[in-house]
Design a protein around this nucleic acid. Structure first.
Lengths: 332, 332
DNA sequence: CGGAATAATACAAACGTTTGTACAAACTTT
DNA sequence: AAAGTTTGTACAAACGTTTGTATTATTCCG
């Protein structure tokens, strides 16, 4: 491998001059820079990033920590972040936590030990608060949280308008004539889910419907728990559900079917996340779409800009068959 | 940050001894090692990976290059590889090529410049051969190819039994009574697709059916191209398709519907990859399942073992409604 | 034209680790 | 007990880059 010293020797200058020339320092003559660049190209030089990182104390790697990359939402966030970061000369190190606290701590350690330039993350369900994050990251490594955020932590945050989204989804169910609407609320240690639950409640209140806490089902996030909660909701006389997740909504549909209910005639449902399958199933599932690609872009930009604020990315309700009792509309 | 020199100073030994103690060298006394480990723990020492990497000339990072992480197949391969590599003390750097040649070259460069310990990859459709891979990686960085492999490249390979899988899928269509079976064959610069096409052909031959080249549709891989190819196939009188991808199969289903054909009565289809949506749609789609998690595990193990051979991971045909004209069976 | 100011480059130390070699001490062996 | 062998540490040189300071070359001004 050719080093800056090789280039320096070939040109009769010192390594420091070569280094400065290649990094665009104003302290080298234009003429020298050109000569260095030419020689570097000729010799096929490429900067040793590891050495550079050691000396600079940080790398060009940005770490992204997500619960699971195969979730449509997260892989699209990653895609969005990548599109910005790559253009800015960073590369992306992706870690999965599988929703486990210990894996999250390990991922944070790995990133810190690799001296990443920054961390973009959405915490695991298994994390109750953000203490470990600041503890591992210290105050040297910038942090951008997205989707699931701990608001007590400093640093930029990118979130959806969960309250408004869930509000719109629930209102939509009301408008379709459903009257006893429950919710699969998810995990309350995530502020995103908590905000959705509040939006659901507010929509019921504003519609003059009672808010019945027995219709709120917590800790539902996968298909299985959605199925069980769906059975309970049906037993409690629900005629519709707003689910804070698509997979749990899928489970609930299974539950409704197992009880012989027709969708959307007897039972309406709106999920959240707009997973690919929602549009492809029959009946197609209405879902409150997040905008993950844009969230990833915003998170990356917040990191690059070094700003501290909270960016809100709007959600969009995709009305499909599973909640369309009044047959006027249906989106693909 | 506390360094090995700090520990050395605190114990009155030299940094080299501390380094050897922490890395388990047999050249330090058991007693010394214990003292070093104790002091390291007390002082909260963590090895500076970047410095270590610089000195050793390689890192504990394994790069994984895939066309797109949001593809179910690839995210599961990554998950499988991660499960093995993490346990072995490596961390995983993921790059997407978005099927573009230039992005692939860039990813390879990034990985090499980060001195990764190895690369696991599935090449982009845009790559016609593996010249650039060996050129960038040199012969120092071990390479493991999976799914889409260039057999001319040295190094381990993990593939599916594409020939046998496509053979089984096509035979299944024959057994269901379809007689004019076409195929959405994908890109022929990928050996995986080429092998599937051969399996399809062989199954027709063995069934005594003619192999009609006009029923082979190339370069179909997304929904749109699948739709177009589907229209052509229907116009040519096909009553079934084996598609080398699920998304193109989805497009073909759309094409059949747009022509008023019932599935599976008038038109049968089997996709490939067993994407999540295939089981959830109505009618559910038969698909030739790959085993991505296992492929990822195998690729990681091949890297760790440093072996050169080719590992074949078997595919499994998931028979569902879209190809079940004889109503006896249907899998979830 | 001398001296000050500026520009361009050279020098050298540092980042924290690993590792080959040298050395000293503690054991064997005859 | 001297010589040889093993064992445990110390020493020092890397790995390739960056960057503060020193030095030399150039320009400017009165």
């Amino acid at each position: 491998m050719v080093t800056i010293s090789d280039i320096a020797a070939a040109l009769g200058v010192t390594p420091s001059t070569v280094s400065r020339a290649l990094s665009g320092s104003p302290r080298v003559k234009e003429e020298t820079r050109l000569a260095v660049e030419k020689m570097a190209a000729e010799m096929g030089y490429e900067r040793n990033i590891v050495a550079s990182n050691l000396r600079k104390g940080r790398s060009d790697i940005v770490g992204i920590i997500v619960p699971r990359i195969h979730r449509n939402f997260f892989s699209n966030v990653i895609g969005g972040a990548e599109s910005i970061l790559e253009a800015a000369g960073y590369c992306v190190l992706i870690c999965q936590t599988h929703e486990r606290f210990d894996a999250e701590v390990k991922a944070l350690r790995t990133l810190r030990n690799n001296q990443v330039a920054g961390v973009l993350m959405s915490h695991a369900i298994g994390s109750e608060n953000g203490d470990h994050i600041r503890e591992v990251l210290g105050d040297r490594i910038p942090l951008v949280q997205f989707d699931r955020v701990f608001s007590e932590l400093s640093g930029a945050k990118v979130v959806s308008n969960n309250f408004e989204g869930a509000y719109a989804a629930t209102k939509h169910l009301v408008e379709q004539g459903y009257r006893r609407i429950g919710t699969l609320a998810g995990y309350m240690n995530s502020e995103a889910y908590a905000a959705r639950l509040e939006g659901y409640r507010q929509a019921l209140r504003d519609s003059g419907l009672p808010v019945d806490e027995s219709l709120v089902h917590y800790d539902t996030i996968v298909r299985e728990t959605g199925f069980e909660a769906g059975l309970k909701a049906i037993a409690a006389g629900c005629d519709a559900l707003y689910s804070a997740g698509d997979f749990s909504a899928l489970g609930a549909i299974g539950a409704a079917r197992s009880r012989g209910l027709r969708i959307p005639e007897d039972f309406g449902i709106v999920g959240t996340a707009n997973e690919a399958f929602t549009a492809l199933m029959t009946p197609s599932m209405s879902s409150l779409a997040l905008n993950p690609f844009e969230m990833g872009r915003q998170a990356a930009q917040a990191f690059l800009a070094g700003e501290e604020g909270t960016v809100v990315v709007p959600m969009e309700l995709k009305v499909r068959d599973s909640s369309s009792r009044n047959k006027q509309q249906s989106q693909p």
